[in-house]
Write a protein that binds this DNA or RNA. Structure first.
Lengths: 149, 149
DNA sequence: TTGACTCCGTTCCATTTCAAGACTTAGCTG
DNA sequence: CAGCTAAGTCTTGAAATGGAACGGAGTCAA
């Protein structure tokens, strides 16, 4: 299976992976969430091959996850910003960060701490049910194809 | 950067990606959450190259995400099951499914429906703050390095 | 006005990874 | 014995990646 075939699979995970399913793309998004916006900064922070970075940014822009925006003329300079669609990836990124924190942290604790400014506390994300609000245990979930779709 | 270098980055996302950060691994895990357990079934369902499947399963076993378990002798046959560490990936998978549902679903709705057996409703996952229980908006989060670690 | 510098790419080439399918092994089954 | 199944290996050509050099449009400082 090739990347573009993923897109036409009848599976939301496959479709998501067709956009963000490679290592570099997710690291680029990490930087974006850390407010990195310029080509050079992405490149320096990640040590990614420039060609690959060019390609990944273009793909994310094409998919509407990032927006390329000229922040100055003469010379023209661009920055890449998360769109709302890009911000919507936050739960996915954080879920992965949480998993890393839980299973691969140093004894001294996780590498970074997240503070929720609305409540003022350091926190981690919790995955809850949209209907009852309880924490979701995968064993308490049943899946069925959507006949309508 | 190579895959094994990712592992030693001081970043939980990078560490997570060193385990599940490629397209095939996540699709293998999707199947595992759908209760697929055997080599042949993973291979048929995904159409993955057998060599790649062998390699990915071995990697997941090595990382303790899956467990290889002989379910019969003579001839020896194995199955791959999610460990607790594997089940802990559920929030990450679901966050990606949600994103696909939101941004790439057909007009008729998402491809599959999830039912929460504890409350009996069809649901989607919601990412909330461990401290105040509110839905987390990425703009309301500040990040800082953990000095202790 | 010259030379150094910045940003954002391109181009080239050697290395690595992947896709696809044939082949292997061990043990059934008829 | 011939054929079948599960779980891999092996082979080969195609694609992606890493690394490093190059380009071009413009700024800056001397």
């Amino acid at each position: 299976m090739r990347w573009n075939e993923l897109r036409s699979e009848k599976c939301s995970l496959a479709r998501t992976l067709s956009v963000i399913g490679d290592r570099w793309t997710l690291l680029v998004l990490r930087e974006a969430f850390l407010r990195v916006r310029r080509f050079e900064d992405f490149q320096k922070n990640l040590g990614i091959a420039r060609r690959v970075l060019t390609e990944r940014l273009a793909h994310l822009v094409e998919e509407g996850v990032l927006e390329k925006h000229a922040y100055q003329e003469r010379p023209v300079r661009h920055e890449y910003r998360l769109t709302q669609k890009g911000l919507d990836l936050y739960p996915a990124l954080m879920a992965m960060v949480n998993w890393g924190d839980r299973h691969y942290a140093d004894p001294a604790g996780p590498p970074v701490v997240h503070t929720h400014t609305s409540c003022g506390h350091d926190f981690h994300t919790v995955t809850t049910c949209s209907e009852c609000g309880e924490v979701v245990d995968p064993r308490a979930v049943r899946v069925r194809p959507n006949i309508a779709s």
